[in-house]
Each structure stands twice: as C-alpha cells, then as structure tokens.
Design a protein around this nucleic acid. Structure first.
Lengths: 197, 197
DNA sequence: TATCATGATGCACAATTCTACATCGTCCAG
DNA sequence: CTGGACGATGTAGAATTGTGCATCATGATA
C-alpha cells in the first residue's frame, strides 16, 4: 500500500486506542467486522472509502481534503483540539481507577503506615490534572508497585518503589503543557512540538 | 454511497476543474483511467483509498483525518490558502490569453478606432490583478463581443457590448478581496464568506 | 458542416475487498 | 491455571472495484 495509506491507517488506530476502544467496540460502532478493522489498521488491505468513513465517524473524525500548502496549518490546529481527545475516557482510565481502588484499600488495611497516606494524598492531587494522557505503562508500573505493598515481606521495598513510580508520574506531568483541570484554555500555538499523527 | 463520499467526490471534481484539468489530464497525472475518474467523481462507485489518494496527490491535495471539533477551524484555514489555487493556471487562463490575442489583433487591424485602444489599455491594466478567479463565462462573453468587432456591420454595436463586458469585469473585481499582484498578503479571516467545498 | 476535446457509459475479465465464522496466541485477572 | 478480552489470521464465497477498450452525446471550434 502507499505511504499515505499507512499514515491514515495508523491515525485511525491511534484515534481508537486514544479513546480506549477495542477493535470489537469500534466494530459495533462502525458496523464493520472486527477482522476487517484489524486488517485495515494493519494496512494489509486497500480499504474502500466507505469503510474509512465509517470508522472515522465512529471515532469522531472526518475525512477531508486539504490543499498541500495548508497542511502545516491544519496540522497545528488538529494538535490543539484533537491532541488529547476526551479528557474523561481513555485507555489509561482503567488503570487510574484501579490505582485509586488499590490505594484506598491499602489505606484502610494499614492506617498506621503513614507512607501510604502520603501516596494517597499526592495521587488524589495528581488525579485532578492530566493523568489520562500519561502512558498506561507508567500507571501500570505504579499500580504493580502499590499492590506489592500488601505482601508483608515486601512492604518497605514496595513502598519505596511506589514512591519512585509516583515521582516518575510527577515528572511526566511536569514537562507537559499543563492544562488546568477544566475548560479548554487557548494554549499558545508555539508550545507545540510533538509530531505524530 | 454515503453522503460523505459524495462530498469528497465533489471536492475532487471541484479541485480538478479549478486547476483547469480535464479528466484525461488527471488520468495521466494520477495513473487512473479516465473512465474510472468519471465514475469516482460521479459517485457511482465506492473508491479504494489508493485511488482517492492518487487523485488527491495529483491535485496537490492531501487526504487527512480531522477531529470533528476541529473541522470548522480547518475549513476556514482551507478557505484562506486553498481558495484560489495556483494564481497562474486555471480554467479561465485560456480565455484570458485568447482575449489578449484578439485584442492585440484588433489593435493592429484598426489603429484608427480609439475605442479599441481604450479597451486594450484597461484590459492590460486589469490583467495584472485577479483575472484568473473570474468565472469563465464572463470572460467568454467579453471575448465574443470583441470578436464581433471585426465584422464591419456590427462594429459600433459590438464595441459598446465590449465596453459593457469590460465594465462587468471591473465590477466583479471591485468587490473581490483585492489581492495585489504579487506575494500572498495576510488577508483577514473575517472577510471570508463563501462556503462550498 | 466537419472536427475535436470532454465527460459519460457499456462490457468482459481480472483483482481485491468484504463478510461471516472460526481460531489462535497473548496478556491479564481471578 | 482457567477464563476472558484482545488483536491477528485463515478460509470460502459473494460483491464490487479496477482495467482496457470502445463508444456515444455534447459543446465548442475551425
């Protein structure tokens, strides 16, 4: 397939995962068999336009024709508004709620360990910001670390690991555009640097 | 076919004609049989993505995915830059050169008729501006009128018609954005009003 | 009138998508 | 380790595009 085709396919997959949808979810939304979606995303087929449009629409996207000379401008616009999709849903969302669960469970299970309380607090703090835009791996790592605290023999080691993970999270948030909790702020165009689809 | 498909098809046709290309021209550029281009533009088939991309590329367009919420912004950008395509080529270009030809031919054939000289002058004047963006019909009308001047029995009537046509041209240019001869000026976004694809 | 360019359409055949269903390997959770 | 979710892949058959070639109708031109 052509390069441009691959780009579109990749964009569709990115959009889907960004929304936390499985291929089967999208299949239901777009009315296209999961197998076909897999093939399209993988770029092993040359899809019909209706297929693309069905998928795009299901993902709140539109297939448009843009003059070459306008492409850069359009891209920067797309970054601003389309960059992080819905702030609420996302692939990391599951992780986040699970972390919250584990954390509160820990808190009631061992109210004496004050390290846990600190973690709880800082996490509750962070949670009000950009967490859904963090890579799921990072979140997974944090959760894993937290879960090991429940195993007595690993408590101290697991606690420091948890604090490390939490620190990492903080760092990631640190050099992000920093978008305040609610309402989309303008956010200057010159702060954009990323460049995927 | 879906509505969105029709829109894309129509856009492609618009882009092609805007560039003054025939389906056979595009066929050569895009490597797709003319018959197929006809069917695609007519919306009687559900094209493969590669076909769309081939056509788009040949027309200096790109097929992109745009988040729904960013669509309005993108559209306005596209208007600004994509609005009038290449200033040099266009469907009206042929007419323009032909007008120039007829006009200079007239000028040498009948140097005594000073009305012709005035037309010549004002046209040469206008030609340095936005002529390619004028509808071909208007230009055709002007040319037709000019050609009839060569027929003696119609001279006076044809001359006034020509002046009318020239006037119409002037008017059209009058309430256009007025872009000076060279280098794209910023042109404020609030002056946009058109709204097709 | 005759010619030419353009776009639309028909037809047969090859090529490929699309569908439905099944299945498989992996990762993760209970 | 058993089960579930997920994505990838296979297969057979139906549906449709894509191609090549021919043709036609129209409008403009000489």
């Amino acid at each position: 397939m052509s390069y441009a085709t691959q780009v579109i396919a990749a964009s569709l997959r990115a959009a889907r995962t960004a929304k936390g949808l499985s291929q089967r979810d999208l299949s239901a939304l777009a009315g296209i068999p999961q197998a076909q979606i897999s093939r399209i995303e993988a770029g092993t087929v040359d899809p019909r336009v209706t297929s693309l449009i069905a998928m795009a629409n299901a993902l709140d996207l539109e297939l448009t024709l843009v003059p070459r000379k306008a492409v850069p401008a359009v891209k920067s616009i797309v970054r601003q508004s389309g960059g992080q999709a819905d702030p609420t849903r996302g692939p990391s969302q599951k992780e986040i709620t699970r972390i919250a669960e584990t954390l509160s469970r820990l808190q009631v299970a061992m109210p004496n360990l004050d390290g846990v309380m600190r973690l709880q607090k800082t996490f509750a703090d962070l949670q009000r910001f950009q967490l859904p835009t963090i890579e799921p791996e990072t979140l997974r790592a944090l959760r894993k670390a937290l879960e090991r605290i429940e195993v007595p023999s690993f408590q101290i080691e697991a606690l420091t690991r948890s604090q490390d993970a939490m620190q990492k999270l903080r760092n990631q948030l640190a050099h992000q555009p920093f978008v305040p909790p609610e309402d989309a702020s303008p956010r200057p165009a010159y702060s954009l640097d990323e460049d995927d689809a």
